[in-house]
Design a protein around this nucleic acid. Structure first.
Lengths: 223, 223
DNA sequence: TGTATAATTTAGCTATGCCTAAATTAATTT
DNA sequence: AAATTAATTTAGGCATAGCTAAATTATACA
């Protein structure tokens, strides 16, 4: 069995690898809020366990064994988030923090029971995909909201789960995964978005839009 | 915040204190499966935090602050056991182990949500009392089954929660808290008990009976 | 009362996982 | 190509929490 810290490193390497191949020590350390020297130390340990590949000064990658563990932890995290949300009514801006602690501690049996209770779900409350019990992730195609053009319609697919204040804000605006909206206007010079949700008009700043990902994008000019 | 290990020590001191005043280093160490020297070390730390009182070679006691923390952890543990049993269908011989890990990790919010879901329960699946959120425990009067005489009737009040094999055995016999039975015969020379449960006759050995506690004891000779 | 036994404590070691500061290696600039 | 800058690694330290072995204290017995 691995330590909680080691599991967190593997999970972080997985996530950082998603957006751009090899992961540098510095990026990893920043992501985990530790110093680079500490990351180097853990990387060495993970290497002796054959969970990561690493060449000095060149960055880390997960091995197949490392990725399997990372996905197992991510599965725990996302199942927990959804379970806390649906079964215990924890607000969606609170589930991440709670799941962050529980993910290292639950048994395979509890994982399976939550999975069954939830009807074998494929996404957590923020829209992130839940790997299945064999570690298979179905990664849907997402587009950052900042790429949208005036006149387009789409659906919220996923939002960042880390900042509770942002999540409360998005919740107030009803911008949950699944919510459909239409881009009324994009202000020039990297300005805010004005969107239309069932008649309600809402203005979304760039900084917020960066944390929203959409799918089902359709040009609605001629509709 | 305390470490998980410190919380486990406080919880253990509380439980051992219940059955006999001051707790010796050796008893505490044995209960926690650590060496006496390790217990001495932790006791020192807890003393500097004013969570225990300790005189060298004389044993430990919890301070009010220490007891409050112990009861908080015990509350977490027992609420979790009942929650896992009722909400997720974890069998009663499995809830202890799972709760042992989760008890150190759940938030006050999650504690409150489970409490509400369960309807503010007062006992866990093994019959142990759940302290309320202010740390008040209603300790019901229990009698060890080994004290029963032939001809008496009673109800299972509580069973030990630590040994899964024992719990599976008791479960097979339907000896859950609340189950009523009548003592048909107590074999002489510390022999086994023959009990009657709704017509079914079952023989319970001494070693098993030691782990069963009963209440509502009534002499049924003249009934 | 003195001595043997049992329990407890001290001392010193290990491993994890973090830190800071210094040294090394790589990348960029001139 | 040399020098500066940035990133990474090494070295050494700290806290937690366990361990063993030795020293100490208390208790029980004769």
């Amino acid at each position: 069995m691995l330590t909680h810290a080691a599991e967190d490193y593997l999970k972080s390497i997985y996530k950082l690898q998603e957006k751009g191949g090899k992961v540098s020590t510095g990026i990893l350390a920043a992501y985990l809020n530790v110093k680079p020297a500490s990351a180097t130390g853990m990387i060495k340990k993970l290497k002796t366990m054959k969970l990561v590949s690493h060449e000095r000064y060149r960055g880390v990658t997960l091995t197949d064994a490392g990725r399997a563990i990372a996905l197992e932890i991510i599965r725990h995290h996302r199942l927990l988030e959804l379970y806390l949300f649906k079964a215990l009514g924890v607000p969606w801006d609170g589930v991440h923090e709670e799941a962050e602690k529980l993910e290292h501690v639950i048994s395979e049996d509890m994982e399976a029971r939550m999975d069954e209770f939830l009807g074998y779900p494929t996404a957590d409350p923020h829209g992130a995909p839940i790997p299945d019990k064999n570690g298979v992730v179905i990664q849907k195609e997402h587009i950052p909201m900042t790429d949208l053009q005036s006149g387009q319609s789409c659906r919220v697919a996923e939002v960042s789960d880390t900042d509770p204040a942002l999540l409360r804000h998005l919740g107030n605006l009803n911008l949950y995964p699944g919510t459909a909206f239409h881009v009324k206007e994009v202000a020039p010079f990297e300005g805010p978005f004005t969107i239309d949700m069932e008649g309600e008009q809402v203005v979304i700043g760039r900084e917020v839009a960066k944390h929203i990902f959409v799918d089902n994008v359709q040009d609605m000019d001629n509709v």
